[in-house]
């Protein structure tokens, strides 16, 4: 039977398992030195089995990572520089530039989508996220009915995104409860909204999207933030109360610093998603992004989807758009993460 060889290259020594899994050490003529001196050479059979087990355990995730991340992204980058026949071209980037400053070949202006994405993101992270921080904190302080409120807050997280989106869409539809309330209260809505819902009037479509996004944003992080808040020792709050600390002091001087690492993580993820999050625009607008509701993430998806329907798969343009967005996002994420970490020291509790 052949011997199985496991080579420790740094030490330039070979450790060999014979057919009975007994260890034999074969030292070559070269002298061990430097880093190799720190590597353990005499592994027991049990340790080797542990290594084998560990390697096998990570083998599948690594393979998945290589195929579904490395390959996919490398392929996307390559596509950005290819025409439909696979030849090299920079035309896709020219199209992206045109789309931002004017209109692309499909008559789409990405500038408007970019503006919408930024507005939604700024409102979401600049206003709604802090509101969510406060409301979640209030609920964790066991106010009257906090169990019910927490349950209500957590329901959207338990539902599928599509179900939640369809529910909300129905609420703002022409036959939905919000329209019924407006009618009952004598609130005049525009004819366009009255006929087809708030998402079908150019004047109300985007504000409706912002409101929907805000509601979803407040409840969205509730579960994570609740978990973080409940890990803050209650003794800290009791002590602060004895010292006469106000609600605001407890929140801003104790609670938030204690969960700062969680906040940093959430905000870093938010930074990454500024261009890719489409805020369910596709579902809200039946794939049209009409009446000024289009976002960059939506356009990226729609472009790819539509271009994939032809017999010739023409992914160059969306691939280039994705690459350009990544180039812009990367420094924002890195600088943002650095700034967030600088803003406050992490408090260990």
């Amino acid at each position: 039977m052949e011997e199985n060889k496991i080579t420790a290259q740094e030490s330039e020594e070979e450790i060999v398992l014979d057919s009975n899994c007994e260890i034999k050490k074969e030292t070559n003529s070269k002298k061990s030195s430097g880093f190799s001196a720190y590597i353990k050479k005499n592994y027991s059979q049990l340790e080797r089995k542990d290594f084998l087990f560990a390697y096998l355990l990570v083998l599948f995730p690594v393979a998945q990572f290589l195929v579904f991340w490395v390959y996919v992204n490398a392929s996307s980058i390559a596509l950005a520089f290819q025409n439909d026949l696979g030849g090299f071209t920079l035309n896709n980037f020219k199209t992206v530039y045109t789309a931002f400053v004017d209109k692309d070949m499909f008559g789409i202006n990405l500038g408007e989508s970019l503006r919408n994405s930024f507005i939604l993101w700024i409102i979401g992270e600049g206003i709604i996220f802090p509101v969510g921080l406060i409301t979640t904190y209030v609920l964790t302080r066991k106010i009257i009915g906090h169990y019910i409120f927490r349950l209500i807050y957590i329901i959207p997280s338990l539902m599928g995104a599509i179900i939640w989106t369809l529910l909300v869409r129905q609420m703002v539809d022409y036959s939905g409860p919000i329209m019924a309330i407006c009618n009952a209260m004598g609130i005049k809505v525009s004819d366009l909204a009255y006929r087809n819902g708030f998402l079908k009037d150019p004047n109300t479509a985007f504000p409706t999207l912002v409101i929907i996004r805000s509601i979803m944003g407040i409840v969205g992080n509730n579960a994570v933030l609740t978990g973080a808040y409940t890990r803050v020792p209650t003794e800290l709050f009791e002590s602060a109360e004895l010292d006469g600390a106000s609600f605001g002091t407890e929140l801003f001087a104790i609670a938030i610093p204690c969960i700062w690492s969680t906040i940093c993580t959430l905000l870093t993820f938010a930074l990454c998603s500024v261009f890719t999050c489409d805020y369910n625009v596709y579902l809200f607008t039946e794939g049209m992004g009409d009446n000024g509701t289009s976002t960059i993430g939506f356009q990226l998806f729609k472009l790819t989807y539509e271009l994939s329907k032809g017999t010739v798969k023409s992914y160059g343009y969306p691939a280039a758009l994705g690459l350009v967005l990544t180039v812009f996002t990367l420094p924002i994420v890195l600088v943002g993460k650095w700034a967030l970490e600088k803003m406050s020291e992490n408090v260990e509790v």
Binding site: N83, D84, L85, G86, G87, T89, N91, N92, K94, T95, T98, D104, M105, V312, S314, G316, Y317
Partner: peptide, 10 residues
């Protein structure tokens, strides 16, 4: 955009 169509199509 005619040139873009042509270029994209190779």
């Amino acid at each position: 955009n005619w040139d873009s169509w042509l270029q994209n199509a190779g």
